[in-house]
């Protein structure tokens, strides 16, 4: 964000606690001091308000980054995203555009209850007119953020509270990571796991355990949910013949269902087993730590799903 704000003075950050408090999760640390109150803007507590202020500012030429303290709270700003930002270009016959980034932590954190644990990407990824990205790694977090800010469409960046502490190397020359391109995290032969954001790390853990049992897993990290890199998914499934999708959020509909649809439609002849999904259990997220962990996709559930599809294929010989 800092690099992009240095690069383009139309870019500004707006949201609750982004300035003097340095961000509810310290994401905007030091930015107020660097850019001042005109470009790092603390707002009243009104998501619908500052989402609307951002949309209005974007329509007349600025490039806002709107921070939601968490994506859960974007529900009260849903109208500005669904009925306004996403449609302004199309509804106006291409006269107006809305180059705006909405960003914040998404999905579960740790013991924050059902109103703070939603995987909101499933609601948003269905909307034509917006792009949705959900990075898992630090370099992608940087590169996709830069791509989002430079994009002329509304882009929704789904971060993860539990990944904010993740450390990693970023190449000095890393600039933009293009949206719509998946990342092959790990190569394997027996089963493809499609995941994104924090669940990619769960998949990596599961894959390591499965390797000890001689099951070779390939991991495709989507990075971008809309547009979706169907070529990467299909290529991987054509190689492994099996697919498990892992994401947070409820199992009814959503990104996993979209991936499953594309796999059965575009790689049907290569499939040895049904596509399985590992998702959050179909209940509002409980507070209790044990129950919460039970609800979220864990490596053991991923392992079980992979074994099911692998054994089915082998069983039939």
């Amino acid at each position: 964000m800092i690099e992009e704000m240095e690069r383009d003075e139309r870019v500004f950050l707006m949201g609750e606690e982004v300035g003097h408090y340095q961000g509810a999760y310290k994401v905007s640390e030091g930015m107020l001091e660097k850019f001042g109150e005109r470009r790092v803007v603390d707002t009243p507590i009104a998501e619908g308000g500052f989402a609307g202020v951002g949309v209005g500012a974007a329509m007349v030429g600025l490039r806002p980054i709107i921070e939601f303290m968490t994506w859960n709270f974007s529900a009260v700003a849903f109208d500005q995203i669904l009925n306004n930002a996403a449609k302004l270009r199309q509804m106006s016959g291409g006269q107006f555009n809305c180059p705006i980034v909405f960003r914040g932590p998404n999905a579960s954190a740790r013991q924050v209850g059902s109103q703070h644990s939603h995987a909101m990407e499933h609601f948003y990824a269905t909307i034509p007119g917006v792009k949705v990205v959900a990075p898992a790694f630090v370099d992608d977090a940087k590169g996709l953020m830069k791509a989002a800010i430079r994009d002329d469409n509304p882009v929704l960046v789904m971060e993860s509270e539990t990944l904010y502490s993740l450390k990693g190397e970023i190449a000095d020359d890393l600039d933009v990571v293009p949206m719509g391109k998946a990342r092959l995290v790990r190569e394997g032969a027996d089963c493809t796991i499609v995941s994104y954001s924090r669940m990619t790390h769960v998949a990596v853990e599961a894959a390591a355990a499965l390797e000890k049992e001689k099951i070779s897993v390939e991991i495709v990290d989507l990075r971008s949910l809309r547009p979706l890199d169907e070529d990467a998914i299909v290529a991987s499934v054509q190689k492994t013949h099996r697919c498990v999708v892992v994401h947070e959020g409820w199992p009814y509909g959503g990104v996993g269902a979209e991936v499953a649809d594309r796999v059965q439609r575009l790689a049907f002849d290569w499939l040895e087993a049904p596509v399985l999904r590992v998702a959050t259990l179909d209940v509002p997220m409980p507070y209790n730590a044990k129950l919460e962990q039970l609800c979220m996709p864990q490596p053991d559930r991923v392992i079980a799903a992979v074994k099911r599809v692998v054994n089915r294929g082998r069983g039939r010989g």
Binding site: V53, G56, D79
Partner: peptide, 17 residues
Amino acid sequence: SSCIGPQIPQAVGAAWA
């Protein structure tokens, strides 16, 4: 906006810009 109201904060945003 048919939803009644969203244009008012947008007007404020445009004015602020």
